[in-house]
């Protein structure tokens, strides 16, 4: 198992393949395993040198009590690249991993050939969220009304409310992957919720404000599921970021990588080979970018 010391913390990573560097950043409470079961890791290693790593506090990386904002984790990513000798990379982030990725592009554009966002909501863009499309309504349809949790409640939820939802989520089985049907109430998950500031930090824009979007210069391809709560973010980003193209994947939600991995891989590989050229061509020829 490969580990690197990153800002004083042991970080678990894997690197395979040959070609331009691609780095994969998973979402909250996930791990490198997400990229295995979504096919992304094995598919991209055929053409790129792919590095996937466990975020601090996740998987086989060590945890710290605090330091989980997207700015903190972008700092960890650049430190990981320094340690591994990766000067520049294409970076792909899913969900909160996309917040880390976009924050990285803002802070370290010179280390970034291009980025890919996969259904990332962003703390500063919470107003764009369509909570009616949150998968939890279906999963917890019996429990939520008893708790007084409604879409209106969710939109007003304070930190205590978010903590309630996260605690509640330990009671439901895993919905997908090789452990589906198994418990989510694992020691790793408990530790993240109870011994770290993660549940507070992920709601903190930590400098990645709506106004700063226009300052992000690396090319960006932003994928969103058609029935995701965050679908509206795609057009918002492509209108505000000069080098961003939005992509909506039909008939899928927040975890579109699990349900439509081939669509993603087919669209993202040509972009990864030449992010700047791909975005330039797409912007010049509007037919090449999918309107949202």
């Amino acid at each position: 198992m490969s580990k690197a010391i990153v800002n004083g913390v042991n970080v678990h990573y894997q690197t395979k393949g040959e070609g331009p560097d691609v780095i994969l950043v998973h979402g909250l409470t996930a791990s490198i395993a997400f990229w295995y079961i979504t096919k992304v890791f094995p598919a991209l290693t055929e053409q790129f040198r792919v590095t996937a790593y466990d975020l601090k506090g996740h998987g086989y990386s060590d945890s710290t009590p605090s330091g989980y904002t997207s700015a903190d984790l972008a700092g960890d990513l650049v430190a990981l690249m320094d340690t591994l000798g990766i000067e520049r990379a294409r970076i792909i982030g899913h969900s909160y991993g996309g917040s880390v990725t976009l924050h990285f592009a803002l802070l370290y554009p010179e280390r970034c050939d291009g980025i890919v966002l996969c259904d990332t909501g962003f703390a500063a863009l919470r107003h764009l969220r369509n909570i009616d499309h949150w998968p939890g309504w279906e999963i917890w349809k019996k429990e939520l009304p008893d708790l007084g949790i409604t879409p209106e409640w969710f939109n007003r939820a304070d930190q205590q409310g978010i903590d309630t939802i996260l605690q509640k989520s330990t009671e439901i089985p895993v919905q997908f992957g090789l452990r589906r049907g198994g418990t989510r109430d694992t020691p790793r998950f408990r530790k993240l919720l109870e011994e770290t500031t993660l549940s507070k930090d992920f709601r903190d824009p930590s400098g990645l404000s709506e106004e700063r979007l226009a300052d992000i210069t690396p090319p960006c391809m932003a994928f969103y599921g058609e029935i995701s709560p965050f679908k509206n973010v795609a057009s918002h980003l492509s209108a505000r970021m000069p080098h961003c193209i939005g992509q909506v994947v039909p008939s899928v939600g927040h975890f579109f990588l699990l349900h439509a991995p081939d669509v993603f891989i087919e669209r993202v590989v040509p972009y990864l080979h030449d992010p700047a050229g791909y975005v330039r061509n797409a912007k010049e020829n509007s037919a090449a970018s999918m309107p949202t």
Binding site: M1, S31, I37, D54, H58, Y60
Partner: peptide, 9 residues
């Protein structure tokens, strides 16, 4: 009782 990440490891 493996988690997915245990399988990766």
């Amino acid at each position: 009782g493996f988690e997915s990440i245990d399988a990766v490891a």
